[in-house]
Nucleic acid binder design. Structure first.
Lengths: 195, 195
DNA sequence: CGTCTATTTGAATGTACTCAAAAGCGGTGG
DNA sequence: CCACCGCTTTTGAGTACATTCAAATAGACG
């Protein structure tokens, strides 16, 4: 049950069995169903969730009601609203499940206890944050530097496993284009198969 | 000389005069001239720089040679390529000075020494990272959710001090539009002054 | 099956880009 | 102090990319 998450944190530093046991004892397992919402705009995010199985999305809803998807998260990733969680401020984001998923969640209080007991865990979370920064920078570059078709091709090459399991309209919302236009791009690509 | 940076870190935690002295002794002051490049694509970023005075930009250059500016950094901010610095990997980014600037830089070795001597500094850097994540998320949302004119208005309202000191073509490269188009937006806005 | 939602299609429109050229502006040297 | 050079900003015409809206089709789920 804990093998995946333990292997994951062990890649960030060496931990003893006792330390991992403590870590595991602080995690709260959670099962969510497809479309279930974990965080809404205005709420304070009280979890960092490790994904054991499934897929979640983090998104923003603008004035006109359309979704801007910031991130898809699948197995072995963490999801949270970093800012809201750490600063205890209302979130601007929504988080929900793209499919039925199993998570381990850590709330602020338990995270504190973990860090107090095993300070080396600071490193695990710092590495998580760094990876998150890296991912966001990549995403920003790719979003800004390229036209829609190139963004789509880039996406399906980079994340084939995600592209296969999320609805097409969500991919459009992630790539910053309308679902209609993505559909047209796909038609063009299917005709000239030169890619 | 160190008052600004010390006040800045003291906002993240309480430090004694001795701890701050040690911190200050590890900082390397650096003066850069306008257009001077601190980091090029392919290099490994060996600094985290606190800006005492001046303005720098972090950007990416795509295949076609055009710049995508990720961030402008001014007084009291830190600049670095987070990923490259921490993982010792070649950077994809460029960093250079928009105007003559004064910095304090910290290299990986000195940062290690600082953290070894004063572990509470972990917190300072974690907060920096968190803010960085927040800033990137905001930027992504604003870039994706709005058309060019709204992005520009948002930018000059949010960062009037930056808008005033960087060339217009750099603002365009930050907002993800061509300089020509930004110029046209400004003309439209100047005519109908209803904003 | 039938209903609901997701995807596709098409026409019309709008937004932003390209390219080329002119105008503005700052610095430098005569 | 002025003239010139290089760089930034502005302008315009033409075009390409992407959106909107409406409707048809396809898929998923009960």
């Amino acid at each position: 049950m804990f093998s995946a998450i333990n292997a994951s944190v062990n890649r960030c530093g060496r931990f003893t069995a006792d330390e991992l046991d403590l870590f595991n004892s602080l995690l709260v397992p959670k099962t969510v169903r497809k479309r279930q919402v974990l965080l809404r705009e205005g709420e304070i995010c009280d979890f960092e969730a490790y994904i054991v199985r499934g897929c979640l999305r983090t998104y923003y809803i603008d004035e006109s009601g359309s979704e801007v998807i910031l991130q898809f998260a699948v197995e072995d990733w963490w999801v949270s609203d970093v800012c809201s969680f750490h600063e205890r401020t209302p979130s601007q984001l929504y988080i929900d499940a793209v499919e039925d998923s199993e998570l381990f969640t850590l709330n602020p209080e338990r995270k504190e206890r973990l860090l107090a007991a095993v300070p080396q865990f600071e490193r695990v979370f710092r590495l998580m944050l760094q990876r998150h920064v890296g991912a966001l920078e990549q995403r920003l570059i790719r979003t800004m530097a390229k036209p829609a078709e190139a963004r789509y091709l880039d996406f399906i090459r980079r994340y084939p496993q995600i592209a296969a399991r999320v609805p097409q309209q969500d991919i459009a919302a992630y790539l910053g284009m309308t679902p209609e236009f993505l559909s047209k791009i796909r038609r063009r690509l299917a005709q000239r198969k030169d890619w």
